[in-house]
Amino acid sequence: MKGLKNTIGLVVALAVLYAVFAFMIGENFTSVLTIENMLKNSTIVGLVAVGMTFVIVSAGIDLSVGSMVAFVTVVFAFALERGAGVAMASLWALVAGVGAGLVNGALIVGLRITPFIVTLGTLLMLRGAAKGLSGGNPIYPDNSGWVESLMLTKGGSDALSIPPGVWILVAVAVLAAVALRYTRFGRHTVAVGSNEQAARLCGVPVARIKVAVYSLVGVCAVLAGLVQVSLLTGGDPTIQEGLELQVIAAVVIGGASLAGGTGSIGGTLLGVLIMEVIRTGSSLIGWPNWVQQIVTGAIIIVAVALDQVRHRRAA
């Protein structure tokens, strides 16, 4: 019940924001091209936010996602440049992303260091590794094959053209939503975040669940990385700095608590869209970047404050 109310609230918020900007800007905002662009812009944040939702529901946090995406793009482009095929390069990218996620999970579980510190460390390490591998400069391979077309839209036509990358996000989100709500794995993830000791008492494999959720972020970062390659037509070690903050903000706006135990994939995606509508809307109005940042920051605080008020009423 609570989840449904949360979702309705977010849908209403998104619709109101959209209507306000549509009223203020007009056709420039409601055009097919703008909608396409907003969807495209949301894809990377959305993919990573799906993984992050699992981590935050388990009462963890992953600060390394921006670096992870950059690292994945560089590994992919580097492999292509060294003569690997697209399939092989994608496999390397998968190994890089999932490996990074596994390392995060293993360090958190094995060394019993808080996720904040571990992923702060790997944020720097992965960024460094990406720069080292690429020599500090972007790599533009000649041909990225199918990966290049991930974010291609037909263009020019009036009909909405949704690129494959967005469909991948939709598919991933549906799978993740089902996994979080209707599988033992999902239930165990919530239990670990809600009360780790109780989960342990009940025989929930706490360590395995933690490693799994950080690895899941790795998988999402691989997909986001390939989408990034498509947008850039290459790999860039400096791309997506600060992605982690956008992603965490989206998850939190979506109704998750950093204390763990609550959160939903649907809410997270609505959070991503709300942030994107604000960003696109305010830039089309012509507000400078600093205004956008203040507005986005305020929205995060307002969203969480509203959530708190609702919880207190319910209690």
């Binding site: 033992r184 239930r187 109780a198 009940c202 929930v204 135990g261």
Partner: peptide
């Protein structure tokens, strides 16, 4: 409070935490 139950989770979720099948149908 700290170990026996996950207080934020529901009666059903707490009761069935050790007996969950891989797919949890509502």
């Amino acid at each position: 409070k700290n170990e026996g139950l996950a207080l934020g989770m529901t009666v059903a979720e707490n009761t069935l935490l050790t007996t969950l099948p891989p797919w949890v149908s509502p």
